[in-house]
Structures are given as structure tokens and as C-alpha cells.
Amino acid sequence: MSITLDEAVALITLEADLLDHGQFHEWLGLYTPGGRYVIPTDPDAEDFENVLNYAYDDAEMRAKRVERLLGGRSISAAPPAQTVRLLSRYRMLADDGDTCTLRCAQYLKELRQHRERDYAANITYRLVRTPDGLKIDLKVIRLLIATEALTAVSYIL
């Protein structure tokens, strides 16, 4: 049974909503145990392990990132920036029944310290069907500005 676009969009919309509303522990549960959350510095990179990324998080690093945002001990995340993100332009690139690859656009606004900033990105998801439902096995956020100067991002894109 193939993964439908509706199913896939429901999952990543849930992810976006959890992240915008600070429900980070619930967010952790959306990933497979071996899943990766990646923000490359090079928009053309595919071999993420051998290049520098902004983030290359396995389950342990994702959990630490959440702890950092909720722990109150990081001055740039006490409190974390407020964010509003919109996902759109969904396209199913591949689907072999248990695994699919979905690409979409994300536009995100952040507010912190009286300053609004924004980031646009192409996001590619690899989603897999598991006994616990559809999960994220890979999320690659290719920031439009990846090769330029960013500003501090003390939240989860």
C-alpha cells in the first residue's frame, strides 16, 4: 500500500505545529530511532556525514537540542524564539510502498528580542511506515541562505 500525499502532509504538518508551539518532546516521537535531522551548509550536499552541516542530528543530538531549548540554561533560548512556519508546494518524489520521499517549501518567521527574522527553505523528507505509524526517517532542510551568513538560530527549524 503506497503512502498517500494526504498521509505524508498530515505528518509533516503535525511536525510544524508541534515545533511552532514548543511541544518538543512530542516532536522527538515523530522520528524513527535511526532518523536524522539535517541542515546542510552546502545546498548540493548529499553525503552529509563527510561535510560540515549546520545540524546533523541523530536521536541523541535531537534529544539534547530539545533539552537545551527547554532547560532554561541557554541565554539565547530562555525563552526560545517564537516561530510561525508555513509549509506548501508538496510534491511526492518517490514512493515504494513503505518509504516515500516528499519535497516541500517552508517559510518561517521568528520573533525574539523584539526582532523579526525569516528563513525560506526547501525541505526533503524521507518518511517510513512503521508498526507505530508513519515516521520521519530523514529531514533535510536546505536553507535558501545556506551559503550566506545566518543569524543565531536557537530553536528548531
Partner: peptide, 19 residues
Amino acid sequence: LRLHEHFQGPMGFGTPDDA
């Protein structure tokens, strides 16, 4: 590379607090 990503840069666990 993983050590660099952990602390440095705009999404590291160190640099944003420095900034």
C-alpha cells in the same frame, strides 16, 4: 565535523549563546 557542529555556528550549542 561533528564536534564543530555541536558547539559552533548559528545552530550549535555554544555559538548562539555567545551571539
